[in-house]
Design a binder for these strands. Structure first.
Length: 485
RNA sequence: GGCGCUAUCGUCUAAGGGUUAGGACACCGCCCUCUCAAGGCGGUAAUACGGGUUCGAAUCCCGUUAGCGCUACCA
């Protein structure tokens, strides 16, 4: 059956940036579509003119593309069910609203928002659920005519039937039911002529032949209204899957106040898309195996809505960092080289003429020690410039009165070497230590401090080999002159 | 307040009537080692609470509690 072709949509409203929760919603839709040879649609829900943000759509699309989530139908791409901006579909919503109006399942409401607010407050005081009091439902036809002629602003509300239990099945939450008594006569068309989410999403999902609605849990309470709308129109309700929310460490809904929520923030901080995608995929889903590291294709292969959890998940940055470390390690040397060069070009070292061979050696030496590309520079600063300061703690620990004299001997030995290899440095150091009658460690730690300024890092001989003979000697002599006890 | 959803280590989660409740991150220890990492090995740590059902419950049912969501002419 052709109508079983899976079609899903990610339908964000363009409010400025892509929320990581939005990224996960988009990802699950994408994975579900790809897994089922379906179609992934991007639809822009820009029906709130008050929240319009310049450039938000372009940013959204660029961020999705960065994450690797390419859509099949949507802005700039077209498709048979456009337009894909809701703001360009106003006549469509209008037409369907008129239909409900004429069928009596919707009605015009001329109530001022001030009155509605008052009403709501009263209801709240009486501990009732807040619902429109249906004043305008009972307006005589003549009065409606008059108000229309007068040009009074109005909204169109849907009429919720009384005494109905609305049941539905959610792929993630199974059976859910609501009583229609608690449902408000929802506004479908605002007084500015724009539709509300509820009308627009039902109409579009139907017209765009969406088979599975995969979205955040915050929409669960609205489903009964949508079901009723499908029923009024005589349309089939798509399959529903309401995703658990992403939470702050204190379990509140993930928000800006407690850290970064925009995908762009993570991108700017140097997180790899592979890591971020892998991470958000696991917030609320798991493959049922012990595999933790996934690329996009593997996620597609193994994803299923049935394995999505019901409970909200805390966004745990530690694990994301670990995933970034792992995904960075999986990159080829050439890929890391490109990323490093790109990063360097944005730093104070952009004019340093470093050849690829040199950078490749740095990469090899630092790989097991970096979580982010920027760590190559932040943790291996000494590969890009001589130490400016020497870690005080390490000086106290490794530098002795006799150290300068010992290093002098060593640097003299180094001077006599021609084109030394890593092993040559090692032999030279061993021999010097022997002639000084001290342990190798004494020299090793002092040299490390002298050439790097810090106490940690790759093996000393690797560092010397990367820096080269002349630079190493220069740095040792520098340290002898500059480190004072 | 009303309605809905949810509830396993600190965090992400596995286990869908019978397990010493498993894995991962983080943390701690040991090994490796010139340091810092990485890696290997090991460890601390959980079924919110109370009732049922059952020979047997993390798992099924009910209640309580807590958290979250919705309760707009926002999505």
């Amino acid at each position: 059956m052709n109508q079983n072709k899976v079609r899903v949509r990610f339908a964000p409203s363009p409010t400025g940036y892509l929320h990581v929760g939005g990224l996960r919603t988009a990802l699950y839709n994408y994975l579900f579509a790809r897994k089922n040879n379906g179609v992934f649609i991007l639809r822009i829900e820009d029906t709130d003119r008050n929240r319009y943000v310049e450039g938000a759509v372009e940013n959204l699309i660029a961020t999705l593309r960065w994450a690797g989530l390419d859509y099949d139908e949507g802005p700039h791409k077209g498709g048979d069910y456009g337009p894909y901006f809701q703001s360009e579909r106003l006549e469509i919503y209008r037409k369907y609203a008129e239909q409900l109006l004429s069928e009596g399942t919707a009605y015009r409401c001329f109530c001022a928002s001030e009155r509605l607010e008052k009403m709501r407050k009263t209801q709240e005081k009486m501990k009732l659920s807040s619902k429109y009091d249906r004043t305008c439902l009972h307006l005589p036809e003549s009065e409606i005519e008059k108000k229309l002629i007068d040009g009074d602003p109005y909204v169109i509300r849907m009429k919720i039937p009384e005494n109905r239990i609305i049941k539905f099945y959610d792929i993630i939450r199974q059976d859910v039911e609501f009583s229609s008594e608690l449902i408000d006569d929802q506004v479908l068309i605002k007084s500015d002529g724009y539709p509300t989410y509820h009308l627009a999403n039902v109409v579009d999902d139907h017209l765009m032949k969406i088979t599975h609605v995969i979205r955040g849990e915050e929409w669960l309470s609205s489903v009964p209204k949508h079901i009723l709308l499908y029923e009024y129109f005589g349309w089939e309700v798509p399959n529903l899957a309401h995703l658990p929310l992403l939470l702050n460490p204190d379990k509140s809904k993930l928000s800006k106040r407690q850290g970064d929520v925009a995908v762009e923030d993570y991108k700017a901080k140097g997180y790899l898309k592979e890591a971020l995608v892998n991470f958000v995929a696991f917030l609320g889903w798991n493959p049922g195996t012990t595999q933790e590291l996934f690329d996009l294709n593997q996620l597609i292969e193994q994803f299923s809505l049935e394995r999505v959890n019901k409970a909200g998940a805390v966004f745990n940055i530690e694990k994301l960092n670990w995933l970034n470390f792992e995904h960075l390690r999986k990159k080829t040397e050439a890929e890391v080289l490109n990323m490093l060069k790109d990063y360097l070009s944005q730093t104070e070292y952009k004019n340093l003429q470093l050849d690829d061979a040199y950078l490749l050696k740095v990469i090899e030496a630092m790989r097991a020690r970096v979580t982010f590309i920027k760590d190559f520079v932040e943790k291996g600063k000494y590969f890009f410039e001589p130490p400016i300061i020497y870690d005080e703690e390490i000086v106290n620990k490794r530098w002795r009165e006799e150290t300068p004299e010992q290093l002098k001997r060593l640097s003299e030995f180094f001077s006599g070497l021609t084109n030394p290899t890593k092993e040559d440095y090692e032999v030279a150091l061993h021999k010097t230590a022997q002639s000084l009658n001290i342990g190798n460690g004494k020299l090793i730690h002092a040299v490390r401090l002298a050439v790097s300024g810090v106490g940690g890092g790759p093996g000393l001989y690797d560092i010397l080999n990367i820096l080269g003979k002349d630079e190493s000697i220069k740095r040792i002599e520098n340290a002898i002159n500059r480190i004072k006890l």
